[in-house]
Amino acid sequence: MKPAPFAYKKARSLDEAIALLGENPDARLLAGGQSLMATLNMRLSAPSLLIDINGIGGLGGIAHKSGAVEIGALARHTDAERSATIAQHAPLIARAMPFIGHPAIRNRGTLGGSIAFADPAAELPACLLALDGEVDAQGPKGKRTIKAGDYFKGLYETALGPQEILTAIRLPAASADTRVGFAELARRHGDYAIVGLAASARADGKGLKDVRLAYFGVGNTPLRAAGSEAALARGDIDGAVAALDLDPHDDIQATGAVKKHLAGVLLRRVAAQLMEQRP
């Protein structure tokens, strides 16, 4: 289908975009458009105005500074996929990128758009949670930073206010003892996951500590599996699978029972990745 009529305005600065959001309560921000345009074409929503933020300067950078990797909201998936900084300092993101959509989607889609949209089956929100990252936002009241644990509120619902713009995400940079794991099951390469798992941990002698497991595709938001984290830290993989306290609903892709089984399969794969010693 074709989208319902709307007006279009290309914002030149964050302040201009924030002011436009204030004046037009049903306006939507347009970043990569790879989720928004699809929903507009299907007439799932009909905003009066699209505020294109692609022309706002300074939002597309990827930098390693003071122990963190900062990724600007407008960095495209392709930029992240090819970034040497991400490969070296944010290896979990590097592992996840190829699973996101297809090349033409990754050429346009942005990391900020993905975190703002917060699709429950998307890779990046789970990575943000697994890494205990944070989100920078700017709105009429100024700037603030939101921890990943406080950011995901519900189905497609985040802590961002109606006039707030996500400007960057920040992830702790990997150190020598950082271990990451990533796996997902999808029917076809590039589809949203049936179930996926993003994980981080720190090596502790021969074992692991600070294990963080973030599942996606099993609930309204990315979900931690606390019981399994504790078991993995003890090196008990069977125990970690047994402790999975997820309760996924049936969806178009699979029943809840199948998803729960697959979550255990992925846990074993990711546990093996986490326990692999670095060369």
Binding site: G33, Q34, M37, A104, R108
Partner: peptide, 9 residues
């Protein structure tokens, strides 16, 4: 770069 013509205005 390649894009979706249906997802850009």
């Amino acid at each position: 770069v390649i894009v979706r013509g249906c997802l850009m205005l």
